[in-house]
């Protein structure tokens, strides 16, 4: 009984190391994100700018008005989408589920487009509209899945169908009201270029509240992963909890989409990478995803503005180019030595 550890036992120490590494990586990529760009700043310039209330020098202005909103936006959107993906995968016990796959992102996108078309300039309302759009689409997908027997593949197919209908809706809105989404292609691909603090600020409150709720419901999420029958037999009102957790996931994805556009990939691959590193236990997985998502988006955003200076790629493109092959490499590398069924 006294921890006679074999090779297959995952000791606690490397786990602590994983979190420490993730925390350091988050910090380092945030600092790099503040420093690097078309005009590079020294660490000293960044630090002195951060401690000033008013921008004095040109470096201060770059750090405070161009870089800081973008860095904050990356952390916020990356964490929100990754945690949203982990929650959705857990609730639906479906590894293929992710905010962009099951229509959450496009629902949020459509609501954001409609909101911008009818109430231009209502930035504060945007995250809430996006949340409602995301929630409605996720509930629709859930309804379809339950009506058709909730098999894993039906759920994804239903989500893909809903996604394409909603994406057509976004296109229709943009066709009729071309100004609805200024920089439409950026929105579609996902981009954080030209972000000012006023845009992510309302979304930040939604994300923080939703993250707090998600972190407090990790036991419930774990029970749902054990299967509906086990969850119910342990006294969990599984139906209600599924909807509550999906609402939390929709709030996270909706808030991120409201200022960062339809960034899809983070919500799918970061949870998978984290599951491989820390396991499926939500108590460990969700904080890991929050940090991992932030790191991934920060680094991809950095690459998108550094690779072809002074031109900039929307981060959605870099994300797919870097994230996709990395994920495939991870799948290939870990195929051996895992007995998953």
């Amino acid at each position: 009984m006294k921890n006679s550890q074999t090779s297959s036992i995952r000791p606690e120490r490397p786990l602590a190391r994983v979190y420490l590494t993730l925390a350091l990586l988050t910090l380092a990529s945030a600092v790099l994100s503040l420093m690097l760009g078309p005009v590079s700043l020294s660490p000293g310039e960044v630090i002195s700018a951060l401690f000033r209330a008013e921008a004095v020098t040109a470096a201060d202005r770059i750090a405070l008005y161009a870089r800081l909103p973008r860095t904050c936006g990356c952390i916020l959107a990356g964490s929100a989408l990754a945690v949203s993906g982990a929650v959705i995968q857990g609730v639906l016990s479906n590894p293929l589920a992710a905010p962009n796959v099951i229509g959450v992102n496009s629902g949020a996108g459509l609501a954001a487009a409609v909101c911008c078309a009818f109430f231009p300039g209502a930035y504060a309302a945007l995250p809430f509209a996006a949340f409602l759009g995301a929630l409605l689409s996720v509930l629709l997908v859930l309804l379809i899945a339950e009506r058709t027997g909730a098999s894993k593949i039906t759920l994804v197919l239903g989500g893909v169908a809903i996604s394409s209908v909603l994406a057509a809706g976004v296109d229709a809105v943009v066709t009729f009201v071309p100004d609805a989404l200024a920089g439409y292609s950026d929105f579609r691909i996902g981009s954080l270029a030209g972000l000012t603090m006023s845009k992510p600020a309302p979304a930040a409150w939604v994300v923080l509240a939703a993250l707090a709720l998600a972190f407090s419901l990790t036991h419930e999420l774990d029970l749902l992963m054990l299967g509906r029958d086990t969850a119910r037999s342990l006294g969990l009102r599984a139906g209600r909890m599924r909807i509550l957790l999906l609402a939390v996931a929709a709030a996270l994805a909706g808030a991120a989409v409201s200022f960062a556009g339809l960034l899809g990939f983070v919500g799918l691959i970061v949870p998978h990478i984290m599951r491989r590193l820390v396991g499926d236990e939500s108590r460990l997985l969700l904080p890991g995803c929050a940090m991992g998502g932030a790191v991934m988006l920060l680094l991809c955003d950095l690459a998108s503005r550094m690779l072809f200076r002074p031109y900039e790629l929307p981060v959605g493109i870099t994300l797919s180019f870097i994230g996709g092959p990395f994920f495939i490499w991870l799948l290939l590398r870990q195929r051996k030595g895992r007995t998953h069924d």
Partner: peptide
Amino acid sequence: YMPQERGVPSI
């Protein structure tokens, strides 16, 4: 209750 079908999460 121990159900017949169970999830196999990595925990």
